[in-house]
Amino acid sequence: MNPLIAQIAAHSPGLRDWLALTSVIFSIGLYGLLTRRNAVGILMAVELMLNSAAMNFVIFNRFCLPARMDGSVMAIFVIAVAAAEVVVGMAIFVALYRYRGTVDVNQMNTMQDPVISIEGPGDFNREVMKNINKQYKSRHDH
């Protein structure tokens, strides 16, 4: 046998290694969610986080209770739910893209507390903009 493979086989990853992996994946997902500007990228980051959590279930099932299937079943449900989540998210993003021509989350700030002027590309709803600006003005009148 190739000594490299033997060495790898002798050190097959245990519970601790797998958990480290999932936490790393979770952290990468969180980092992506906080830094990506494209909303689709954010959804991918979310998918990473959800899958790392689902992996946790499988890992615990495999190492702690190999006789039962609870954790694996949970993981399957999580995959389904995550898919649903992503589908709804994508649907919203697509609708938004059609309307504003972008899914850059940095530009998704028409609603905020200290209202500032709204600039951005795409086909804005002029009326809504006017309305928001009016609100902004009225709020500074008082």
């Binding site: 969180l30 969610l33 906080l34 830094t35 989350v105 940095n106 998704m108 700030n109 028409t110 609603m111 905020q112 507390d113 200290p114």
Partner: peptide, 17 residues
């Protein structure tokens, strides 16, 4: 405190974390 409401979803997420 209303300055927390930046309108940026990623700052909201950061607060969350």
């Amino acid at each position: 405190f209303s300055w927390m409401q930046t309108g940026q979803v990623q700052s909201y997420s950061a607060w969350f974390a």
